[in-house]
């Protein structure tokens, strides 16, 4: 019995420290989400403006879009490039499994894949996808500069006429409780049918030249937005996963404490019984 008591005590200690660790991880994730949310907020006017100008140019020049290699339909090849944005670390609930499901559903073995995050890299390599390059997601907030090399791959492949479209698989951050895996088309740029064009603008030097210069900004803004979303989702998923783990650890600790107290009481009772029996005999 004494041995058993020791063991139970040990287990209580273990579950307590697990509760502590998960609590700390939850709080770290919570603070990271706050930062991510404010960054998304700050980036929004920039991204909206860029999208607005692109849609404006497309709306005012209905013929233009089809000539540009990045806009409209230009089937250079049947192959597409897919960016898979995941996380570097696990312990974030169903987030990664959902991303993997999306990858399996949308990517064919022929497509080029660029992975961001170690988990996506491991998954794609293990399953024999055509991984062109892999980047790290990092545990801190992604920098704007970090997307330039990622998008350069897309430009290079477009110039080499190896791909016809670019898709991004990432987790969209809806709110702290809901994150959904999505596949978005980054390129070709689609016309927004709901776009309301107010007034004609003068384009200098010409609308085509403005568009050519603007398109990289458009991709950067869109892609950065997706990257930020993925980061925020990762943190949110980790926060809720850790919160659950914390609850469970506390529950286990509580039930173990009851077992411990019961068996200790049992032991004392037995000892008293032994003593009482001894006196009688």
């Amino acid at each position: 019995m004494a041995e058993n008591l020791q063991q139970v005590k040990k287990r209580i200690r273990t579950s307590n420290s697990i509760a502590q660790i998960t609590k700390a991880m939850e709080m770290i994730a919570a603070s990271k989400i706050k930062k991510a949310q404010s960054a998304v907020e700050k980036n929004k006017p920039f991204a909206d403006r860029v999208k607005f100008i692109v849609q404006k140019i497309l709306a005012e020049n209905t013929d233009l879009a089809l000539n540009s290699s990045f806009v409209g339909i230009s089937k250079n090849a049947d192959r597409k490039l897919v960016y898979v944005i995941s996380s570097d670390k696990g312990l974030c609930g169903g987030l990664l499994a959902n991303i993997y499901k999306q990858v399996a559903a949308t990517v064919t073995k022929d497509d080029y894949v660029v992975t961001i995050g170690k988990k996506a890299q491991n998954f794609c390599i293990k399953n024999g996808y055509n991984v062109k390059a892999s980047f790290h997601m990092g545990s801190s907030f992604p920098q704007y500069e970090s997307i330039f090399p990622m998008l350069k791959i897309m430009n290079n492949l477009y110039e080499a006429k190896e791909i016809s479209s670019v898709e991004v698989i990432y987790t969209n951050f809806k709110n702290r409780l809901v994150q959904e895996p999505v596949t978005k088309v980054l390129s070709p740029v689609e016309r927004d049918e709901n776009f309301v064009n107010k007034g004609d603008h003068v384009f200098e030097p010409s609308s085509k030249e403005v568009l050519d210069k603007l398109i990289p900004y458009y991709f950067e803004a869109s892609f950065y937005n997706m990257l930020m979303n993925a980061y925020a989702s990762e943190q949110a998923a980790r926060m809720s996963a850790m919160s659950n783990a914390n609850e469970n650890a506390k529950e286990i600790s509580a039930s173990l404490t009851i077992i411990y107290n019961k068996s200790r009481q049992e032991k004392i009772t037995n000892e008293i019984l032994d003593l009482a029996n001894g006196q009688i005999h």
């Binding site: 991984v131 062109k132 390059a133 892999s134 980047f135 330039f148 090399p149 350069k152």
Partner: peptide, 15 residues
């Protein structure tokens, strides 16, 4: 940029 892309590609290959 080029250097980084190269590194990322090498990395993927090595992996």
């Amino acid at each position: 940029n080029d250097e980084l892309i190269l590194k990322a590609k090498q990395y993927a290959d090595e992996q």
